[in-house]
Design a protein around this nucleic acid. Structure first.
Lengths: 340, 340
DNA sequence: TTGTAAGCGTTATCAA
DNA sequence: TTGATAACGCTTACAA
């Protein structure tokens, strides 16, 4: 069907090998010959067959990306950057969405290994390790992104979630808030654990108030943020500020508050994490901790590229990016007149 | 490095061919033999090499997806469904993001062709046809999704955008709105043209008001919706309802209105398209036209699967899915007391 | 039921 | 600077 290098070899009278040389820009070929071959290739509409090339070179120039929820704007943005950086380095991306499900994750790992991807970037679901095990055993270079395992010696790029939690807490404390509700994600997620720890730290000084509640909305989504808040409100629980695990959850939280006639930030302050694009196009713009999505994607790709091209087995490198507090409209001073 | 079929052949004493038979579940092999081979394969940790398989079979079991903006929740959701349906049929997805740029689109087309994907699903940027041309010439089966070319005989799955526009207009007309502003996307996008036409149709009856303005926010994004609205407001233009090209644009529109002290829907009604998840978690939930993302993804995949497996060159099939009006909080009756 | 041999479209080795 | 020839890891006739 399609034109092959052999066709070109026949057409030009050169050997297959020489044709290959022309395409791969080798030194051991005459300028004239090269020109002629490339011209003929163009005329015949030749297109490399990357499958054959991959088999011969044992390199697919393909990176597997395992993401827990492509519909979450945070991950969507990460994927966008990853795709961009990959493309720039002439790699393709095979996308696998796990919906935070360990079975789908394991399946994704298998698929990518069979596909002989050159490397993997993964946001592990962290509620099961079968997928990770497969990847580790395969020997394919990989980088954890946004989440990591303390006990797994591997490369990772994450935000400094402890610090992020701490910054969120400090911001609220400084505004006078003493009764904080944290709508967290499931504790199996590393960032959930670390943000909680950071938050607690911020309220560790005696007399400085406390984290009154931590509840878990899993998976982290608008719907869960909404449902959880609604339920708590119904229980008559009171708080002057809510920390949401991420902006997406915060959006659901604010909707629930609005429905209950509670105004943000007058009655209750809300703070999120991630700084997704949406967070500054809401009627009340969200105070949030920027999680440096672009940097994370860039770093993850840089580390992976390094491990893929490196000759020797590379030692794992971990990177924690500093978060940044973005103060907008959803947080304000605590009003003492809060009811109970 | 990795275990190959040859290794298994040697280990078991059978021929390469017999090993192949075992894996491909053929009939011409003894039950015992098969069992033994599979067992050994498992023990040795064998993993198929899909690259080699693809080269031999001339099938990669890979589908290329060219999307114009993965960060747009509408497309993110489509991609999620596509990935799901693909996986279900044992296909992988190679993702290419074009950012609505025809150069990136052409590049994506080239890449996917070189990769010998079995099929392509594309949301064409429609501001240049080089990419489409490449795809058509390659002979690889493809399906247009969400956008189509009237003059290109090819398979497509779109929403009935004319009807969607018409429904939006009718809804507003029935609420008494007579001065409508349409913040559209660029006219090169088929859905932009068709929604506009439908909208006009809804106001075609004499005395039934009119579409006062159409302005274009390109690319369709929150930021563009915001900027455009802001600018119009500054110009002192008045209208009682805004139709936004999509929910994402509507979000930016509402933010701009809110900043200007204009309340939705009391002062101005807003209607969007797509019914993204976000649209019912906003402080004021969005009235919108559901664009049946799941159906579109399912249909696109179904048609593609059919074309990929079909023996004969299939004739193009086009499908227009019916939109659905979802009335929520952002539209209300027109108040005559509108200022100018 | 099994094995032999050729082929998929490249790259790589080595000799000319 | 070029050309045979052998990989790469699998499938698929065709033969036994």
């Amino acid at each position: 069907m399609a034109v092959t290098m052999r066709d070109i070899a026949i057409k030009t009278g050169y050997s297959l090998n020489t044709v290959s040389r022309a395409f791969n820009n080798r030194q051991d070929i005459g300028e004239e010959t090269k020109k002629k071959i490339l011209q003929v290739a163009q005329d015949m509409g030749y297109q490399v067959n990357w499958v054959a090339k991959a088999l011969a070179e044992r390199k697919t120039r393909t990176i597997g990306v395992i993401i827990s929820d492509i519909q979450d704007p945070f991950f969507a943005e990460l994927v966008r950057y990853l795709e961009w950086y990959a493309r720039k380095n002439e790699y393709n991306i095979i996308l696998c969405n796990t919906n935070e499900d360990s079975v789908q994750e394991e399946n994704a790992a298998r698929v990518l290994i069979n596909h002989r991807v050159d490397g993997i970037i993964i946001t592990p679901s962290q509620n099961g390790r079968q997928g990770m095990e497969r990847i580790v055993n395969s020997g394919i270079p990989f980088v954890l992104m946004a989440r990591w395992f303390e006990d797994l010696p591997s490369s990772y790029v994450v935000i400094d979630d402890f610090q992020a939690g701490c910054m969120a807490g400090t911001h609220l404390r400084e505004l006078g808030h003493r009764n904080i509700l944290f709508i967290n994600a499931g504790r199996h997620i590393s960032s959930a654990r670390e943000r909680l720890a950071g938050l607690k730290k911020a309220f560790a000084e005696p007399g400085e108030g406390k984290l009154r509640f931590e509840v878990q909305a899993a998976p982290p989504s608008m719907a869960e943020g909404y449902k959880t808040t609604k339920k708590l409100l119904k229980q008559g629980i009171w708080f002057s500020a809510i920390v949401a695990f991420c902006d997406v959850v915060a959006v659901g939280v604010i909707r629930a508050l609005t429905e209950a006639g509670i105004r943000v930030p007058r009655d209750v302050s809300v703070i999120g994490f991630d700084n997704i694009e949406l967070s500054h196009f809401l009627p009340v713009n969200l105070t949030t901790l920027d999680t440096r999505k672009k940097e994370i994607a860039r770093e993850a790709m840089a580390i992976l590229l390094c491990q893929m091209t490196g000759k020797e087995r590379p030692s794992p490198v971990g990177k924690k990016v500093k978060p940044q507090l973005i103060i907008r409209e959803s947080t304000g001073p605590c009003r003492e007149s809060a009811k109970t």
